[in-house]
Design a binder for these strands. Structure first.
Lengths: 356, 356
DNA sequence: GCATCCACTGTAAACGTTTACAACACTCGA
DNA sequence: TCGAGTGTTGTAAACGTTTACAGTGGATGC
């Protein structure tokens, strides 16, 4: 299945390559030429070579979304929002994952080589090396995730501080007094910001006891493992704040293994408000960080940056909102309790109550 | 941040572009030249333009994985396996989603234009148009998902028929007699094959009552909606076979809304054995279709096809295996039952029992 | 009948690389 | 001293497009 070039199409149609090109691109050409060329192209199954076209035109019509942790549904949610925006502007979106296999620096370097006209980056860790590469990368970049200030890089971020305040305030209001934060790795950007946010939030409540541990990862399995340690401590907390929904779900599973009722014995909260939070039982109270809105904002920032390379860098922060579900309700005055209390919770696939 | 070309590097180093190219690519060149060129490249921040390089070399070192439904975790699982294989061979993997926005035909056409050296396709629907495009596409393709036979296209498939037999046999063995299949759209490839597989499987058990309905989609929300209809029927089944885990989870949630105990009042099974199946309560019995193995096989097939365009097309079918969890256990002889029976189920984040 | 315009066409140069080929400066052996 | 060999270099042609430019032919105006 050899590649057929425009030269062959031109020959087959009996015209010059220039005419063929013009006919195919809808530029000025006589109706007969257009007909001949289109027929020839059809017959030979011609498709313009993308690399040649990009080289000549200086643009690829491709944008990239590079994400560290594609296993986390929240990134899929952001990607969907990104795709909606960029494909409306005629770009195709390619997703490239920068896992353990390829470092984010490598991915950025590679993407800077001209395969894409711009990129959105969601790195888990923002190293100095990455910042250096980003600063001198020739293609437009938007970072979706917290970035040091004054970096002159377009940036869309969640508000981790407010998010942590929302959950902590909520738990305290519901009567919790001993709160443990199960973070993901704190050398990651979300890990660091949520750690600090938690510290700030609990500082506002001098009476409550606050502790922190770190899960190995922002995953269900890591949350489960970390929670087992927390719960086997002799003085276990009456609330666990998880750094994201996946960890939160792991915590719920661990609590179940320990025979603990949620929220009777212990409250649990997550962050991201993914679909999963509404699907586990009890429903996981979570902070919605506006994934959809962040994705959209990042895409729009990128499109604007492409149109005007000189515009000043923008930073957009999206406001979080608390979504309360069964996992964090007040511990009730012990209603002649059955050992495992029954949670009568309506499945919130369609609606949810918000408080923010 | 203007693009710096090899011409500038060569000028800056005081050599010809040919020498610069050779020095940068580790071809034959004197140590002094290499040093000068590398220094110049470093200083100017030179990165080779990918489109020019690809045009000249005739290869991009990129492979694509195009997937219809990125919201389904099973595709992420396959992608991870694919990436592991292809990046070990020096390729970069780009993911392109063909959602409602862009038809699979468009995506294939676009990818055939030279942006990638090969692609793996997981289409939801295999239309004649898609087959026609695939047949004449100039870049190597592997289809990950059932394909009509004798298509001379490399193909990796799950064994839906066996999968359906495994769940149906299991449910019958556990004493179920009235089984409803909640399929996804049956005009999709998985929908059609699972429908047929279910029909064949129940045909082997003449005594049991079998019915089918279709959810709008392979999602939790669609499964939930479909299950509400099924369960509000006056003669509700004693088992529901869901066409995948997401639908199965929706079914569990719906059953809960109806106050039904699982597996006491009704058994539920899924397909794909995603992580979610082990995380919901009760654990969702599911058929593992070998996502990891299918992804790996597809990637290897693609690499071989790239190396040898003439080799005959292969079809690889991966054997399924049943993973039994709490959602489908036998209805026990009514142990002085509490209305909502308590499932003491060990969280299977680490191990699971298989039967296949 | 000649100049002018118009609509269209072909020639050729670019885009940034890689690479075949020829040229070059050496060293070595005769 | 010469020729052959070696190791390195530059010139120039390609890869498949797009596009500036200079034609071409015919119709129109005088």
């Amino acid at each position: 299945m050899a590649r057929v070039t425009i030269t062959q199409v031109a020959a087959h149609a009996g015209v010059s390559v220039a005419s063929a090109s013009r006919a195919l691109n809808g530029l000025i050409a006589s109706p007969q030429t257009v007909a001949k060329v289109q027929h020839a192209a059809e017959e030979l199954g011609y498709v313009a070579d993308a690399t040649a076209q990009s080289l000549k035109r200086g643009r690829t019509n491709q944008l990239a979304y590079a994400v560290a942790d594609i296993g986390n549904p929240v990134y899929v949610e952001m990607m969907t929002a990104v795709e909606r925006v960029v494909s409306a502007s005629g770009y195709r979106l390619v997703l490239s994952s920068m896992g353990t296999l390829s470092s984010s620096v490598d991915v950025v370097r590679d993407l800077s080589r001209g395969y894409v006209d711009g990129m959105i980056l969601s790195p888990l860790r923002v190293t100095d090396e990455l910042l250096a590469v980003l600063a001198k990368t020739p293609v437009p970049v938007v970072v979706l995730g917290h970035l040091p200030d004054n970096r002159s890089i377009d940036n869309v971020r969640a508000d981790s501080r407010t998010a942590m305040r929302l959950v902590v305030d909520h738990l305290v209001a519901e009567g919790r007094r001993d709160v443990t934060f199960v973070n993901g790795p704190s050398d990651t950007t979300p890990g660091a910001f949520r750690r600090d946010g938690f510290a700030a939030a609990v500082a506002a409540h001098p009476k409550i006891l606050a502790r922190s541990v770190e899960a190995e990862d922002f995953t269900i399995a890591a949350g489960y493992a970390a929670a087992r340690l927390v719960l086997s401590d002799e003085s276990r907390p009456d609330a666990i704040v998880a750094a994201n929904d996946l960890i939160g779900i792991g915590v719920i599973r661990a609590a179940e293994d320990f025979g603990l009722s949620i929220p009777g014995d212990i409250a649990v909260t997550g962050i991201d408000n993914t679909e999963l939070a509404g699907v586990v039982r009890p429903g996981l109270t979570s902070v919605d960080l506006g994934a959809e809105e962040r994705g959209r904002a990042a895409a729009e920032l990128l499109l604007q940056r492409i149109m005007d390379a000189e515009r000043p860098a923008h930073t957009i922060a999206v406001a979080p909102s608390l979504v309360v579900r069964g996992s964090s309700l007040a511990r009730r005055p012990d209603p002649a309790s059955s050992p495992m209390r029954e949670h009568t919770e309506h499945t919130d696939l369609n609606e949810e109550r918000e408080a923010g």
